[in-house]
Design a protein around this nucleic acid. Structure first.
Lengths: 354, 354
DNA sequence: ATAAAAAATGGTAGCGCTACCTTATGCGGA
DNA sequence: TCCGCATAAGGTAGCGCTACCATTTTTTAT
């Protein structure tokens, strides 16, 4: 009953016998390098804690066997996986694509993987996904959420796992927060229209998730401050945003308030749709109607006429979120709230005095 | 030395003692339901193999403890994780966003998670990522690759893990393939322009990845077949595609071949940029210049004028890829190649006889 | 020189689950 | 009655790694 020493009397048999499917394990490396398995583990995880001599021997053995550590076994043993969960409310919205790209780029080289979840702008779905993701013991979670439910907040807070909420700066962070103020963005866009000489400024918005609501609130504040607010100028729909919808909402708004002289579109897709609708109906932009969008997608700068917008730091948000995580995971002190701001990009579509 | 029976004389202590961090385990459920751990595992994994009576008892215990199985431990024990790896060449391209959405939607309810990788249109990066992803023993891999390297093909083929290559139907499948023919798409778009009465039809393309190349090849074939081919009409750049670039490439092309009377844009972003450029330069579309795009993004149908394009089944590709995986994982017979086709959408931008 | 602290290595015991096999139980047919 | 066969349950032994502690060696302080 003393046949416990594997790999010596069964040079080839191992491969097919073992459940794991024949890839070399840390034990194989240890045997080849003539050290204990734990030392191999250390050499790979914390090289500085192993003497240079052994490190070399181990590295050689790793190279010779083509050893690749099993991330699953590691995760089980250390109760931490190499996965960063990313929760976004939409997969197709370019805004989040940019954010995810920022996250991804910043993560490169760090051996961390991205696991994606789509909350569909639903707080309940978000709650479900947070629970699922946490069960995988992720290294960290990045949540481009809507406003989280109490249960979600509690789960995240108790998880012991770093959490970055992104996009928005307007609520209490669970852990870390990176974004900008949508309220201020909406207000600044509206002020810009007012400053450009428009008076009957409409608002069109789709889906009306919390962030959209805050931009609308910013619009309202700006209009009220200038004594221009009129609820009839607001057109919204729960339908998801699209270019097509932008045209429809504009037509609708102009039908109800024909004296409208400018429009703040809650995002750039709507703005583009509005622009096309104006072209089609021979409405002069910016003379008869000013248009301002939100996000400043690439096309805004080359549309004809070029479209004003609020530039939002989407890529930077993703990047910074990961930077914060990395610092946190390295036990550094980290800011709780990071406001990355936004920037007005005035262009032809609001430049009345051509 | 007989204190092996945990959970009986240490009712609370467990929580803080154990490495895993206090969440209930399958052993806790087993104890509460008074069955063996393996039976709990079976009840959850293959309910039909456990008697109704025990199943109820176990379900109750699960509910009472709020037990959630640990996916990592499961993955280690069964050498299969609940993760589907998704490799795309770009995170920001709407085309892939649509595909990923299709994947995600089809995956919902199935307990499988998506892990994302971005190959940046690089076969080497793809190779690296495939290796990393395979080390996580995914349930399946979906690769919206470029043409894979030999090493990549070999790894995937030997992995024993279902693989769906998507987007393209033109090469040997490693396992399964879902897409359409980019060559045919390019040819059909070009033919459409020819049929619409255009003769000096240009091509603009960016990035020039393999799929783009095949669309160009389709263009070329159509032009040659009609005896209209002229290399001077082709304008390409390795720069990634963008709306801005569309305008620049068009301007460039018109500078070199002023008699060009139509343009096949390798994708819709370029087409939109080209349209704006025409507007800006007062070039009549479709009279002076016809424009046809590729992909048929949402905006194409509402641009002014509306833009012709080739509608590609992006969402359906994602969906179908997952369907195939699901059938394969359920041991059903599955088609190796699925051609989802495409569809010409002629619109105002190529309708010369207005 | 000696004690104390630090650095380098190893042994053991899991992490929480499931593959694989063995053992009980029920049922029909000879 | 007994055998065979299916069904249902349990026992055992890992999956491949790392936390935790024990042990050995080296360095530093006194």
């Amino acid at each position: 009953m003393n046949e416990l020493k594997k790999g010596e009397n069964e040079p080839e048999a191992r491969k097919s016998n073992r459940r794991g499917g024949g890839r070399p394990t840390i034990a194989d490396v240890a045997r080849l390098a003539d050290v204990a398995a734990i030392t191999v583990s250390r050499a790979l995880r914390h090289p500085s804690r192993v003497s240079a001599e052994l490190r070399t021997k181990i590295d050689d053995a790793v190279a010779q066997l083509g050893y690749v550590p099993d991330p699953i076994a590691r995760a089980l043993a250390s109760a931490r996986s190499d996965v960063v969960g990313v929760l976004v409310p939409s997969l197709t919205n370019v805004v989040f694509a940019d954010v995810v790209k920022g996250i991804y780029d910043q993560l490169r080289g760090s051996s961390l993987q991205i696991q994606m979840g789509n909350t569909h702008y639903s707080a309940l779905e978000e709650e479900r996904l947070v629970s699922v993701f946490l069960s995988q013991k992720p290294s960290a979670l990045i949540v481009a959420g809507i406003d989280p439910t109490t249960a979600t907040r509690k789960m995240l807070a108790n998880s012991g796992c770093p959490v970055v909420q992104i996009m928005e700066t307007s609520y209490d962070p669970i852990d870390m927060l990176v974004g900008f103020s949508h309220f201020d963005g909406g207000r600044e866009a509206t002020r810009h229209l007012i400053d450009s000489g428009y008076r009957r400024i409409g608002f069109i918005g789709a889906r009306m998730d919390p962030r959209t609501q805050r931009r609308l609130a910013g619009y309202r504040r700006a209009m009220e401050d200038a004594d221009l607010f009129d609820p009839a100028l607001i057109t919204t729909t729960p339908t998801p945003s699209s270019v097509t919808l932008g045209g429809q909402l504009l037509a609708d708004a102009l039908g109800r308030t024909p004296d409208m002289d400018a429009i703040f579109c809650n995002n750039d897709d709507l703005a583009l749709g509005a622009l096309f609708e104006c072209k089609r109906s021979s409405i002069q932009v910016p003379q008869r109607l000013g248009i301002c969008g939100f996000n400043d997608l690439e096309m805004m700068a080359v549309a004809f006429p070029t479209l004003s917008s609020i530039r939002t730091p989407r890529y930077a948000i993703g990047q910074r979120a990961v930077q914060l995580l990395q610092e946190r995971l390295a036990d550094k002190k980290v800011d709780t709230i990071t406001d990355l701001g936004f920037e007005l990009r005035p262009r032809e579509s609001t430049n009345r005095i051509v």
